[in-house]
């Protein structure tokens, strides 16, 4: 999955009229949107796919509303959430929480989460590649340490130590920066 920095440069190129970059961007965003709606509309793949299409069209026709000062992912998930809430309202289905509350509160929540994710990606990008991959497998994807160790050709102990050091460095970097700040 493409990270925030890559998405941002593709987005800016797309806004400048670069068709190739824009196509790559839409393809990457489609995967994110599929994951987003897939999680929230479990077992309703047709509906999820409709929403993916609707969101792609919306973010295309309204691409002028992207503010280069904010993360592309925050903007995209803002659109995705709006379309999801609109979908619930249309189909009259309510899940988890009343939609009136969701409309006002959840948008802000999502953007916080996206900013946190953005910070995390930035922090990860600063780590050495090997550490980053280990950290991602163990902590983000939840792969068992034994499996990661086998794949990397390391002992379990060495993986644990590398992950621990990586986390410490990541924490040090994140503490040095306010949430959501540009690097």
């Amino acid at each position: 999955m493409l990270g925030e920095d890559k998405l941002r440069s593709l987005m800016l190129a797309g806004l400048g009229g670069d068709s190739g970059a824009y196509r790559t961007l839409l393809q990457a965003l489609r995967e994110r949107l599929r994951a987003y709606y897939g999680r929230r509309l479990d077992c309703q793949t047709a509906e999820a796919e409709d929403l993916v299409q609707e969101s792609l069209i919306a973010l295309h026709t309204r691409r002028a509303t992207y503010d280069p000062a904010q993360p592309v992912t925050a903007w995209v998930y803002g659109i995705a959430r709006y379309k999801l809430v609109d979908h619930y309202r249309r189909t009259g289905r309510r899940r988890h929480a009343p939609l009136e509350a969701a409309e006002d509160v959840a948008v802000a929540d999502e953007s916080e989460a996206v900013h946190a994710r953005y910070d995390l990606e930035q922090g990860l990008a600063d780590l050495p590649q090997r550490t980053r991959e280990l950290l991602r497998s163990v902590k983000l994807d939840g792969t068992p340490v034994a499996e990661v160790a086998a794949r990397a050709g390391m002992t379990e102990g060495a993986v644990k130590v590398a992950v621990h050091r990586g986390l410490a460095r990541l924490a040090a970097r994140l503490r040095g920066r306010a949430p959501g700040d540009e690097p």
Binding site: G16, G17, S19, Y22, R23, L26, E49, L56, T65
Partner: peptide, 22 residues
Amino acid sequence: MTDDLILRLSRDLKPVSRLTVL
């Protein structure tokens, strides 16, 4: 099926000014 859509949307892409909203 979204491949078609993406091709269609990215074809003949027009540049967008940052001042559009304003």
